[in-house]
């Protein structure tokens, strides 16, 4: 029969010769292999002290961005929710009061913004759809939890720290993304 690939190897079915029968040369060969492995570089990452490098295009947990004055960028246009193939995003819009101008950048803002992390597939389409640069996928891995309801992330979980009040936390949350 014609082989389907070129990677076919004929199995050697000749009876074993003397050296193969006493097994010792093969055992010694195996032992040199294991001995060599003792001096190889270990791929282990010492986790809590060191963390593995993430690629710059890594798509992790979402953050809701603020502008440089610390105002929320999101205007609750709903484009992210529309773009989301997993239908993980829910939001409710509200109108900004005159005394809230320092909190929200635009006249409309998201009063409620929720992402169901169990639904999210981390495709990054929300990030692409957003016209206001308000949502980003950060370099952080979504942490594990015990209950399903804790995976519905609200604005509290998602909002980036204020760049004016907490510049350090802001830079950390932003990561190397931008």
């Amino acid at each position: 029969m014609e082989a389907l690939t070129k990677n076919v190897m004929e199995v050697d079915r000749r009876p074993m010769n003397f050296w193969e029968k006493i097994y010792l040369p093969a055992i010694l060969k195996g032992m040199t292999i294991t001995f060599r492995h003792m001096f190889k570089k270990k791929p282990t990452v010492q986790y809590p002290e060191k963390t593995r490098y993430f690629s710059p295009v890594f798509r992790g947990m979402h953050i809701l961005n603020r502008d440089e004055e610390g105002r929320e960028r999101c205007t609750a246009c709903g484009l992210c929710a529309v773009a989301c193939p997993a239908e993980a995003i829910t939001m409710e819009a509200a109108e900004r009061k005159p005394d809230e101008a320092h909190l929200y950048r635009e006249e409309k803002y998201a009063a409620r913004y929720e992402i169901n992390m169990l639904r999210c597939i981390f495709c990054g389409l929300c990030e692409e759809a957003c016209p206001k640069d308000a949502i980003y996928l950060s370099q952080t891995v979504t942490p594990a939890d015990y209950a399903r309801k804790n995976f519905i992330y609200t604005k509290n979980d998602l909002l980036i720290p204020d760049p004016v009040k907490d510049p350090e936390g802001f830079a950390k949350a932003k990561g190397i993304h931008q």
Partner: peptide, 10 residues
């Protein structure tokens, strides 16, 4: 330790 080293672990 030896088992680990031979299996490229720590």
């Amino acid at each position: 330790k030896i088992a680990a080293f031979m299996q490229d672990r720590i």
